[in-house]
Amino acid sequence: MTAAPAFRMPDPLLQVRGLTHRYGPHIGCRDVSFDLYPGEVLGIVGESGSGKTTLLKCVSGQMEPTEGSVEYETRDAGLIDLFRMSEARRRLLMRTDWGIVYQNPRDGLRMRVSAGANVGERLMAIGDRHYGHIRSEAVDWLERVEMDIGRIDDMPHTFSGGMQQRLQIARNLVTKPRLVFMDEPTSGLDVSVQARLLDLVRGLVRTLGIACVIVTHDLGVVRLLSHRLMVMKGGNVVESGLTDQVLDDPQHPYTQLLVSSILPV
């Protein structure tokens, strides 16, 4: 058995070590470490104020943590600490290799430009200048997120919440990112709209092999989408592991409470 080859592990895409963020005397999140592998979907759950959004903002480069490191496997130069690279490089990374889907589509969309332009803009940001190509990519992505192509020239504020959220997803995925961060992507939507969006996200993540970090308070969402789960309470990660293991055999008192609090339908 000692002669058996070791299990082959790919290189992590994201490596987070000892991440702590304080808001003055208050703790946002404390001493969080994890690796995220290509194609892996990590769910972060916890009640409001548990630190999950703070953690997401720090690992997605939107906010510099007080302590700790967030390293990303860049295509050309290997693991680089997000907060040690130049601002320009970090912004390029966020525009190209990453996507961020916000809870409120208004935070992730440009409300005063058309749906097509919202998608095309990301392509232009990575240097695409061919109008015909940009237009056809935009059409393709709007179709993939099941939007009505007839509305490609309409402004996002004329769309329903579910459509805005789908547009936000198309805008993020058009550059074929390797990593997408999602903050409560379905919580502002009606249940039936939520279900369709979840099916869509699940299909896209699976077929494109995108790694994903999803923050939510909805255990149903993580059961459906995530491979792995981190449970947060009071800024600390109290439990983590394989999603079905954490949900079916929770070890920590808080996770047990969380799982037992789901109302049966």
Partner: peptide, 20 residues
């Protein structure tokens, strides 16, 4: 211990990614 292809994996010590 599980025979996984040519390798052995201890499911009690493996990372979620390996278990998947």
């Amino acid at each position: 211990y599980v025979r996984h292809g040519e390798a052995w994996v201890d499911l009690c010590a493996a990372r979620p990614f390996q278990i998947m």
